[in-house]
């Protein structure tokens, strides 16, 4: 219901009535799930780093141990095995990683069911066909390279690049992180042996899971940067209260 009012306001673009300075931008579900995600994602990242630091090497295939040919060694980048071990606490990391994996998963399932049910995915997240035309994409890319713009500060719907990155995170990244995580767990690998075949071994799954962590950090950095460049206060307030203040130009 909140969602439909938000969609209504976006379809009313580009000229909302002069009297309306505020629009309902984000529904309850989006806001609650977003902030739970911030907490769960933060803990997953921190605890994941702890787990990694306790064994800071990556391998490919089924087998990998200290002394086995590695594809990545933290010690090659200036942090020795012992120094990394001092920083990382895998017990704390494992406890919190699995706890917040559940928080993240349950939150994500609620978000996904709600979004599919209300049409949020289709209306807001999934790029429309005309969004994907080369001219539209290059136009948007050029605009992003200009760093900040009034149009983006006033935007009440997601841009195509934004839709593509959100859709990638929801439909590709999260499922892959979940599966590469489960493939590392002996109980799940026994129940679902296809997990090991899918990724070609536990160490490959672990490596992909770590690469995924880097992708997650990049996503967060770009996401926060975009918020800062498009009216940080207004954007963050909209994600808290749901209401977005239209800038003067847009009124």
């Amino acid at each position: 219901m909140v969602e439909s009012s938000a969609t209504a306001s976006t379809t009313a673009e580009p000229a909302p009535p002069r009297t309306r300075r505020w629009v309902a931008l984000h529904g309850y579900n989006v806001r609650i799930c977003h902030w739970i995600n911030v907490i769960a994602g933060g803990y997953l990242l921190l605890s994941g780093i702890h787990i990694f630091l306790d064994f800071p090497e990556l391998y490919w295939g089924h087998t990998g141990y200290q002394g086995y040919p590695a594809i990545f060694r933290l010690s090659d980048w200036g942090l020795s095995w012992d120094e990394a071990g001092e920083l990382g606490n895998r017990m704390w990391g494992r406890n919190y990683h699995f706890t917040f994996a559940w928080v993240f998963l349950i939150n994500g399932v609620i978000y996904a069911v709600w979004s599919a049910w209300t049409g949020h995915f289709r209306a807001r997240l999934w790029p429309a066909r005309e969004d994907l035309r080369a001219s539209a994409l290059s136009g948007e890319l050029r605009e992003h390279l200009r760093w900040s713009s009034p149009a983006r500060t006033a935007a009440t719907r997601y841009g195509t690049l934004q839709k593509l990155s959100y859709s990638f995170m929801v439909f590709v990244f999260v499922p892959l992180m979940l599966l590469t995580g489960l493939a590392q767990a002996p109980a799940f690998a026994a129940a679902w042996p296809w997990l090991l075949d899918l990724f070609g071994g536990r160490q490959t799954a672990r490596t992909l899971h770590t690469i995924g962590t880097v992708v997650f950090v990049l996503f967060v950095v770009v996401h926060v940067l975009e918020v800062l460049l498009s009216g940080a206060v207004n954007r963050i307030r909209a994600m808290v209260t749901g209401r977005f203040r239209l800038p003067e130009e847009a009124q």
Binding site: F55, R94, P186, R206
Partner: peptide, 12 residues
């Protein structure tokens, strides 16, 4: 079988 160490390594 694969020995799966909770620390991160595994060996068959």
């Amino acid at each position: 079988t694969a020995h799966v160490c909770e620390q991160g390594w595994s060996a068959i």
